[in-house]
């Protein structure tokens, strides 16, 4: 009965439980979650397709489709170990990491994130 007082106290006060998912949990700044590659949707087109991120990735989670500045990127959430090494190494700071972590999905395809460049109808990358 060594923890009796503590237990009795707990009975009377509100539990320390977070009410996730009914209230969003405020994630701690700087925690490592979803990887976002700024290829392309946005106008600044930061990614130059150097492939450094792919070389350092310990879990083979990034894939480059095409070559050079016109490449598209794929990120496999189901492989990534969220180490952030690609974020550190990117010379153009095109890769950022969000704090999102609720990425669960019911099939493998849902875990693949495409970061495609914006293209014109001929398939060329828009400047």
């Amino acid at each position: 009965m060594a923890m009796r007082d503590e237990c009795a106290k707990s009975l009377l006060k509100k539990p320390s439980t977070l009410v996730y998912p009914f209230e969003k949990y405020e994630s701690i700044p700087g925690s490592r979650g979803k990887i976002v590659i700024n290829t392309l949707e946005s106008s600044d087109n930061k990614c130059i397709g150097c492939g450094l991120c792919i070389r350092v990735c310990p879990a083979f989670a990034l894939e480059m489709i095409g070559k050079g500045p016109t490449c598209d990127m794929k990120w496999y959430a189901g492989r990534c170990v969220f180490c952030g090494e690609c974020v550190d190494i990117c010379p153009r700071s095109a890769i950022t990491q969000e704090t999102t972590y609720d990425l669960a999905d019911s099939n493998q395809d849902g875990l693949i994130y495409d970061y495609k460049r914006k293209r014109n109808p001929e398939g060329n990358v828009k400047e």
Binding site: C7, A8, S10, L11, K13, P15, S16, T17
Partner: peptide
């Protein structure tokens, strides 16, 4: 419920 509340949870 009593068991859980004694453990500080719901």
């Amino acid at each position: 419920r009593v068991y859980a509340r004694a453990q500080n949870r719901y």
